[in-house]
Structure formats: C-alpha cells, structure tokens
Design a binder for these strands. Structure first.
Lengths: 219, 219
DNA sequence: TATTTTTTTTAGACAAATCTAAAACTTATA
DNA sequence: TATAAGTTTTAGATTTGTCTAAAAAAAATA
C-alpha cells in the first residue's frame, strides 16, 4: 500500500509533531530520519500529493488524519512486536527496538490482529508506551517527567521517553523499572541532578538528562 | 547485507536448481519471479560479481556454496515463521505462505534463534518440508510421489510439494493431512487418476496433478 | 548444414529514493 | 529596514531494480 520509506516518514512526522498536534520543519525531519534536507523536501511533496500531510512550501508540514491513521498503525505494529519479543522470546527491553523497526512494516492485518490476541491484547509496550488500537486510537501519554518533581515528592515510573538502548541499559543498572516507586530526596541546582530513594534498591543520584526522560505519575 | 531482491533470486535459483544440484536457465527464473527475462540477466550478472552464483553468458547459472548458504538461511526463516503462524497464531497451513514471504527477510540472528527455541526446534514446517539448521544444513526431501505408486501400495503422507493455497485447501477438503495413511485401490490409465482409501475418511479419486504433488513414504 | 525458432543478452529508458551544490525564501540581527 | 544567517527548495546526478525492443547466440529442424 505505502512504501517502507513513506511509512517511516509518516511515523517520524507523527512523533516530531507531538502526536500530530504541531507543525514540523524540514530540518527536524532530516535529522530524525538521518537523511539530507533535500530528500525530505522531495518526500514531503510526494506525501502531500497523496493527502497524507498538509504542506505549503517553506511553511513546514502537519500530518493529515489519513497520515496519522497510517502512522498509528505502524506504531501499533511496532509496539505489539516489542511486546512479543520481550514476553515470548525473552528479549530485554533495550534489545527490541531495531528488530521492531523491521517487523513494523510487515503487511497483514490478520497477522497483527492474531498477534494482539496471542499476547492477550496488551495496552502498553515494554517501555510503557501505550499501544494504539486497530482504529488508530491511542491513550494519551502522561507528561510529567521526573525532572518536574521536588524533594519530598513520591512517584511511580510510567514509561521511558527515549527508547535508545543506552538509556534503558542504564535504567536497568540502577534498578529503575516500569512501575518502580521513587521518592525525590534532594535536588542539586548546580547541574540539575536528583537524588532518589528507589523502593527495594540503594539510593542514587542521577543527571537531569535522565530525569527528563522518565515519565512518572505523582503519588 | 543482501537486498530483498537478491535474497529472492537466490531462493528461486536454489529451488529451481533442485536444491543447488542443477543449472538453471534465465527463462525459468523469469517465470518463477514473475519478471522479464532481461531483468533476470541483469540480476544474474550482479549476483555473479558477488560470487553468489556461477555464470557464463548464454550458459545458465548454478548457485555457489555462498549463495546456497544465503538461500538456505532465508528458507530456514521462512519455514520457522510458518511454524510460528500455524502453531502460535492458529493460521491454517494454506494461509501462511504470503506472510512468511515477508517475514523471511527480517534480519536478526538473535530473533531467529530465539524463535526456533520458542517453537521447540521444529524439524519440519506445516507443509512437511524440512527446516534447515543455522549452518545451512537441510535434511534430504524424499522423492517418492503418490503418483509413483501402484494399486495395493500403502503409504504415509510426508509433505505437499506445492505450497499453493489451492492445493492445500483441496487436501484439507479431502482429509489428506501430513502423516495420513493411504492405500491405492485403483489406477485409471485414461487420465492418470488414482482411487484411494484414506484412513479415517471416505474413499476418493484424485487427479494425476494432485498425486504428483504429494510426497509419500511407502509402507 | 542451412535456416528457422527459441533463448538470452544488450541498449536505452523509467520510477523510487537518495545525494550534493546552488538558488530561493524566511527569520534574525545590526 | 537592509543585511546576514539559517532554512528550504530546486536542479541535476546516482543507485537499484525494473521494463521494452532489438541484437546476438544457441538450439531445433528441415
């Protein structure tokens, strides 16, 4: 139906536009896709012709509802495959992204609906991100990051914002997993780092770069 | 590593060459790949440059050991995914081919080795074809077809030679499944059809086109 | 063996997705 | 508000895999 490249562009635009809310500029897409800005212009024109994005030259792009539907379908497949890899094939949460990037492009509704069923209709992927349903509807992602909390605040970890292997391996190392309960014990203004109590583990201090990438629910 | 197209050509050449034994001609490949003979010439030259096939102009191609290894790896993946679809996702044996054609190109050794383990290291796919191991070694496929038997002969069904949906749906309908025990009761010279007793089902008469596509073990 | 038929290859073109370099446009700044 | 800086687009090429039409080679046949 749509090429691998088209699907990847739509997914990138969806993510960069804050889930379809905002307009995205060419350079941002180029950086996300690790491609030249000129290539982005070409592809945008193509997607625009197919009504998958709204586009005016030099004015950035917004994703159309048709484009959003396709993007969410690819994201659905990506996240369901991630659940499969972790739950059924014992992959670690930091090992699944690359393979899921390939599996997300397999075309078969029957396959994905049966996979969903086989996995028990999961609502979240191994990083805590919500899985869109077959109609392209997705639960809102909470926006509170650990970095927004103050000393004394308690929270529960909801999801990792960045699914890069580096972050996930680090979180494993310091025993912060999804659902973990944390308490902020101190904030260090000098570099923005936080000291935390982690339920069932040793107290730790982590950088602002990390706290900005942990989505939490305040308790 | 190798493009989707290259993998598909190698797979086609492997199959057409009787598992790497014989030389294959351009037109046969073109027909198998549903492409123009000219395209085949182009691709063969490319595969030859990469030492995946041995090729002399106008003389046909043979697959090299490197090419055979790649083809068998793709076939391994294809058949493991077919087992997955049937065993874990309840696909019927006639529904798996198309999806497996996509899944066979996913690149990840970790994925395929874990899938193999998850499935309990199956030796045969849902059509009875042997699954190559990770070293590209494959069990020989028996060559006796039902069409070679005589009235009075008894046999067990080993595999379906053709994995087209049409044949498989038909075999289901007449209750011939893998492992089924059959007895040839009559041969009709006029059209080559066979009358059979099927253990646990009604006697049937089937055409030569079908008997030629059922691999059996004589009992 | 000469000729016809079939098979295979080459020549030249095309579409998709990418690139670099240069031009055009927008935004920021003096 | 003119100019500089940054962003985006166009122009023109390249690579991969495909095509059609024509030429070349091999095989079949008279």
């Amino acid at each position: 139906m749509y090429s691998l490249s088209e699907e990847n562009y739509l997914k990138a635009i969806y993510h960069l536009s804050n889930n379809g809310e905002e307009s995205v500029n060419t350079n941002a897409i180029a950086e996300e896709m690790k491609t030249a800005p000129a290539s982005v212009s070409d592809m945008i024109r193509k997607l625009s012709k197919k009504k998958l994005v709204n586009y005016q030259k030099y004015r950035g792009v917004t994703i159309s509802s048709k484009g959003k539907y396709i993007a969410l379908n690819v994201i659905r497949k990506h996240r369901l495959w991630e659940v499969f890899l972790v739950e059924k094939l014992s992959f670690k949460w930091d090992e699944v992204h690359e393979v899921a990037e390939q599996l997300e492009h397999i075309q078969s509704n029957q396959l994905i609906e049966r996979l969903d069923e086989h996995l028990g209709f999961p609502k979240f992927d191994p990083h805590g991100d919500p899985i869109p349903n077959a109609n392209g509807e997705i639960a809102p992602i909470p926006t509170t990051t650990l970095s927004m909390l103050k000393p004394g605040d308690k929270c529960r970890v909801i999801c990792a914002k960045d699914s890069s292997s580096d972050l996930l391996v680090y979180l494993d190392k310091i025993k912060i997993s999804l659902g973990a309960r944390l308490e902020v014990t101190d904030f260090h203004a000098f570099d923005g780092s936080f000291s935390l109590e982690v339920e069932g583990a040793n107290p730790i201090t982590i950088s602002s770069k990390v706290t900005e990438n942990i989505i939490v629910e305040e308790l």
